[in-house]
C-alpha cells in the first residue's frame, strides 16, 4: 500500500518535471492562496435574497410557505399536510423537538427517521438564494436521513439564514463550525430522474415533495 502510494507520487512528480515534493516556497504560496479562499467570477446578485430564494425553490419543484414567527410553524405545517391529504404523524429532527407540534394537531416524534416514516421535518443550516437550495449539516440532533427517507420532506428556513450563494454558505460554515460536520447536503427540490427517455420524474429514491416554510421574523 505504502509502496503504491510512493510509486504514484513519484510518477506524478516525474511527469511534472520534479524529483521531490514541491519546493517550500511554492508550497507556502499555494497554502497562502488557499487560506484566502478566493472566489471565482459570480453571476450578478441583482435581486432580493428572499424573493430570489422563493422563485428558485419553486422552479426546482419545491413548494414555499411563509410565516412570521417560529411559533406559527406547526399550524402552517398542519395546513400543508391537510391540503395535501398527508398523514399527521411525522418524524422531526431532535433539534426541533421544542416546537409546539401538538398545537397543529401534529403527532411529532423526535428521533432518527426510518423507512416507514411518511413525513420528515428538518431545519437547515442556511439556504442559498442563487439556486433555491437548502444546506443541511449533520449533527447528533440533526440526522441526515430525515430529509431523505420520507416521501415528503418539510424544511423550516429562517429568513435571516438565506445567503446569496455557495461562497457565503462556506463562509458561514467556517465561522460557525469548529470542525466540518460529517455530511453537508445541499438540497434543491424533490429527488428526480430523467434516465428513461429524458423524461423528468419526481421522486426517484428520495422525497417526492419538498415543502419549505420560511420564518420571516427570526
Amino acid at each position: 500500500m505504502a509502496a503504491a502510494r510512493d510509486r504514484i507520487l513519484e510518477r506524478i512528480r516525474g511527469a511534472l518535471g520534479r524529483s521531490g515534493p514541491v519546493p517550500a516556497a511554492t508550497a507556502d504560496g499555494l497554502l497562502a492562496r488557499m487560506a484566502q479562499h478566493p472566489a471565482g467570477p459570480r453571476p450578478a446578485a441583482d435581486w432580493q435574497p428572499l424573493a430570489r430564494f422563493r422563485e428558485r425553490a419553486l422552479a426546482a419543484s419545491s413548494t414555499v410557505d411563509e410565516v412570521e414567527t417560529s411559533s406559527a410553524v406547526p399550524e402552517a405545517v398542519a395546513g400543508y399536510l391537510a391540503r395535501n391529504d398527508l398523514p399527521r404523524s411525522v418524524v422531526v429532527w431532535p433539534a426541533l423537538a421544542q416546537l409546539d407540534w401538538q398545537r397543529g394537531g401534529i403527532e411529532a416524534q423526535a428521533r432518527k427517521a426510518v423507512a416507514a416514516d411518511a413525513i420528515g421535518i428538518t431545519g437547515c443550516f442556511c439556504a442559498i438564494a442563487e439556486t433555491g437550495t437548502l444546506l443541511q449539516l449533520s449533527a447528533p440532533d440533526r440526522p441526515a436521513s430525515t430529509s431523505l427517507l420520507a416521501e415528503t420532506h418539510i424544511a423550516i428556513v429562517p429568513a435571516t439564514r438565506i445567503v446569496i450563494g455557495m461562497e457565503e454558505a462556506w463562509a458561514l460554515v467556517r465561522s460557525e463550525c469548529a470542525n466540518l460536520p460529517r455530511a453537508m447536503n445541499f438540497i434543491s427540490g424533490p429527488s428526480r430522474t430523467a434516465d428513461i427517455e429524458q423524461t423528468l420524474v419526481l421522486g426517484a429514491h428520495g422525497p417526492y415533495r419538498v415543502h419549505i416554510v420560511v420564518v420571516r421574523g427570526c
Binding site: 449533520s138 460529517r182 455530511a183 445541499f186
Partner: peptide, 16 residues
C-alpha cells in the same frame, strides 16, 4: 438536486 460533501466518519453520538 443533491450536492453531498462528506468528511470523515460518524461521530459517536450521531444517529446516522
Amino acid at each position: 438536486n443533491y450536492v453531498s460533501v462528506t468528511t470523515g466518519t460518524r461521530a459517536h453520538d450521531d444517529l446516522d
